[in-house]
Design a binder for these strands. Structure first.
Lengths: 340, 340
DNA sequence: CTGTTAGCGCTTTCAG
DNA sequence: CTGAAAGCGCTAACAG
């Protein structure tokens, strides 16, 4: 009765309505006037049969699949999950589907797959959230040239023409520096992201305007990495009263390492993160952090891509830089060596 | 030169190789013998042109899109992100794409969309991760009948024929009960999930075998909810020395509420969660919890769905129940009123 | 306001 | 071993 193994075709609806498939098509798209009574009848039939036009056939004619792709290192990370959610919202607004592809350490076989999806027109365009940079990305983009592409969260300097959606992390880093300076800190160390990432460099540069002597260690954005780098600093006897991590995970790892070494946070060492992940409110002490709205990053990336695809207003296709916000919580306090 | 606005067609490859499209098609699929030299030439051309067969055309002929759908309440939640990651792994193994659709509070408009995707054959099958149950789900499944469907993480009793992948949560609850009993606890309260969910009921039932008097409060799996329910218990003066939450988020909320009320964990109250989220290792004290392997839930769900689609071995299409593991950390300790 | 026809790019008979 | 031709379900000229 309903939901047949083989779905209804437009032809069958047309026959049932006593019209041609053309008329059904137009009743559906509105691209040509249709007799109101006929249209009414067609729509009733469509509802009754629960008819939905075949996506493959539509795609073959129109050239557009109404599916956009999202390439992220790992969907199961909170960070990329937020981006995915935002992209999905944008896709949904425009009645598009979202296909996700994890790049997993930039595995070449995986990378190939979403390029092929672009070529096969499985997807109409791609949002690429790189957590690394380098030749593979350049290559990706060069080979994807001609296809609609948006970079989420990370700019790539070699590709100024590809629209991107990023956050004002330098501004965030300045706010952090100002806070620490006001609290009397002078010895700061930095647990940074991957070297070479624009967003990493921007933060380091901003911080160094205030603390030129700040030591920079590079990690991989994981808790474990923050833990290890902090332990390294402690073991090496590097003097510091504040630690700025490029994301909350590394900050949490740092707090754990400090506790294990008997240092109190924030009495002995202040710790700051970036992102404002859920974890930031949950650790003890709660983490001071620079909030980035990753859902919005995803949403805006999606909107740009869709505008690119539908030939919308060029103003809607420009790169976007979103604000950040310093959220002060319990992990920051006066420098221990500061004058009371 | 490469990556033209309009991709190469099989016809063009055929012309370049001096053969017909038929032969190219067979060189690609191997469904018919092709002269090795000709095949060699064709493959070289394909590589050179970076030709990829059009997905829409293939789909139109074959009826299969090689895309599977995943419906989750919210991809950006850690929990569903893990499932998504597992499903994607399975999809990738079988060279399929993964389209994700968030159901967002079971918004009917959203629910409609992935049913339509099934009908439009945008996706070949669907993995449904319900966090609620009720009429909408029944309806979903009835209307999706005929389509390949797998339930991830949650069984639906009214649908015994739909394959599902779940975890032995009752076993986990028993392990928790045994632990608490051994620590001398007698007064236990439960911060449960949605009433009506099979996985919620299973846990409650198991726990009640050991603690028949345990009070059960239902929450929504969020930190805030655990916080609120625990505050309610404290305000109401309900006596308890242990709290079992149905996930780690609610357990974390409970710990916070307890701290705010001046109760120490685990000296005054022991707290246990479920899932073993990253957050569990990060809170103070670290959370005792029942680990569920959500990536594996996703992976197995994906494999079952793909087996269903390719008409594989029926043995690969049966429901699966995965083990759980009790992970004891710092949030549990001897009952305060227990004999030393 | 409506129908006929062609064709999107591929796979699969059927016919060498 | 290979090719010609039909057709998947839809949309867009073109022709009333």
């Amino acid at each position: 009765m309903d939901a047949p193994a083989r779905p209804w075709t437009m032809e069958q609806i047309a026959r049932a309505a006593g019209v041609s498939a053309t008329t059904v098509s137009h009743a559906l798209s509105g691209k040509r006037p249709v007799n109101p009574l006929t249209a009414e009848r067609i729509h009733r039939l469509i509802a009754q049969f629960e008819y939905v036009p075949d996506a493959g056939a539509r795609r073959l004619r129109s050239g557009r699949s109404r599916i956009i792709g999202l390439a992220v290192p790992d969907v199961s990370h909170w960070y990329f999950g937020r981006i995915a959610r935002g992209v999905e919202e944008a896709a949904d607004e425009a009645d598009h589907g979202l296909l996700v592809a994890s790049t997993v350490n930039a595995d070449p076989k995986r990378e190939r797959r979403y390029l092929d999806m672009l070529r096969a027109r499985t997807i109409d365009g791609l949002i690429y959230a790189a957590s690394r940079t380098g030749s593979e990305v350049d290559q990706l983009v060069r080979r994807a040239s001609g296809a609609a592409l948006v970079l989420a969260d990370e700019r790539i300097e070699a590709l100024p023409d590809v629209p991107s959606v990023t956050s004002r992390v330098a501004e965030g880093a300045h706010a952090v520096a100002r806070l620490l300076r006001d609290l009397g800190h002078t010895r700061v160390a930095e647990l940074a992201g991957y070297p070479g990432l624009v967003s990493t460099e921007e933060r380091s540069r901003a911080l160094h305007e205030w603390f030129p002597a700040a030591l920079v260690l590079h990690g991989d954005f994981e808790v474990e990495s923050g833990h290890r780098l902090t332990s390294d600093l402690l073991r090496a006897g590097v003097p510091f009263t504040a630690l700025v991590a490029h994301n909350d995970s590394m900050a949490v790892g740092a707090i754990r390492a400090l506790h294990e070494a008997g240092r109190r946070v924030p009495e002995d060492v202040s710790v700051v993160g970036f992102d404002d992940m859920e974890i930031a409110r949950v650790v003890t002490p709660a983490l001071t952090t620079v909030r980035k709205d990753m859902v919005e990053v995803g949403r805006r990336s999606g909107r740009i891509l869709l505008s690119l695809l539908t030939g919308g207003d060029p103003a809607d296709q420009r790169s976007v830089v979103l604000p950040t916000e310093l959220v002060v919580r319990g992990s920051t306090g006066p420098a221990p060596d500061a004058p009371a």
